[in-house]
């Protein structure tokens, strides 16, 4: 019953689109998936709204593409399946472009690229970021990320713990369940500047490994939707060129997050 009703509705909607074709083309409707737990890139406020670099960039891109965008929050470990399942049309959530993910989704060009880093409590005895420095320690990372791939591949003598969101490893480094955490340097710096991050310091940045970390963060879309990808790419170039990117960049960072 429900499905047939939905098909009827969809058919009616399709008809409406066909009739008002010109109008619909002006305002492309897009659903953007994001995580909402990764400050300063994307996070939720107490009033339920989304804020952050990703969100501002997404809004700028949508404006550039003349698209009517709606944000959908989705847990990180289900974000790619949800894209494939059609719950939204693009992921703008600081997702690194990797070979593994490219088997399942397509990516636009990068829209930023910042290095990962390792943070630990201020009184830590961890001196560096190598495998030896972290032997026998518990390292917290967000699961299904390039950081977790890196940590699992590199820190094989450590107890690597995977968390569903960045907020959770932050809770656990504060309580002392993990001795160090690995994440994007921006994310860590942003957190260290808050009361909550006062516990910790950055031990050092990690040199990105191209096979693991990829060329940077891109926008993920379903495979084969080349037209949408090209639109996004053009929009990224456009906001880079017209100063909109710089405006957003400067709101959050004191350097160019786009990288070289």
């Amino acid at each position: 019953m429900r499905i047939s009703k939905r098909i009827a509705l969809a058919a009616a909607a399709a008809l409406a689109v066909a009739m008002g074709g010109a109008q619909a083309q002006d305002m492309m409707k897009l659903k953007i998936g994001t995580e909402g737990a990764y400050p300063p890139f994307n996070s939720l406020e107490a009033d339920g709204s989304l804020v952050g670099f990703d969100i501002d960039i997404a809004k700028a891109l949508c404006e550039e593409m003349k698209a009517d965008c709606e944000f959908v929050t989705q847990d990180w470990d289900g974000i790619i399946p949800a894209l494939q399942a059609g719950k939204f049309d693009a992921i703008i959530a600081s997702m690194s472009i990797t070979e593994e993910r490219m088997e399942k989704v397509d990516f636009t060009n990068k829209y930023y690229n910042t290095p990962p880093a390792l943070a630990a409590p201020k009184d830590t005895d961890i001196a560096g970021v190598t495998k030896e420095d972290l032997a026998g320690k518990a390292v917290g990372v967000q699961g299904s990320t390039t950081h977790s791939n890196y940590a699992e591949a590199t820190y094989s003598d450590s107890d690597v713990k995977l968390y569903p969101t960045a907020d959770e490893y932050k809770l656990d480094i504060n309580s002392g369940r993990v001795d160090a955490v690995v994440d994007d340097v921006i994310v860590l710096q942003d957190w260290l500047a808050t009361d909550d991050g006062a516990c910790c310091k950055i031990v050092g940045t990690i040199t990105p490994v191209v096979e693991i970390h990829g060329p940077g963060a891109g926008i993920a879309i379903r495979k084969g939707e080349d037209e949408l990808r090209e639109k996004f790419n053009a929009a990224i170039d456009a906001i880079r060129a017209n100063g909109k990117y710089k405006e957003i960049n400067d709101k959050y960072f004191d350097f160019d997050a786009y990288g070289s």
């Binding site: 996070s43 107490a46 989705q74 847990d75 289900g78 907020d167």
Partner: peptide, 20 residues
């Protein structure tokens, strides 16, 4: 709450993580 439906546990969980 694990499939992103904003029920009691998810909302309190978000509050817990944001406010610590």
């Amino acid at each position: 709450s694990t499939i992103a439906l904003s029920d009691i546990l998810r909302q309190t969980g978000i509050a817990a993580r944001v406010t610590k």
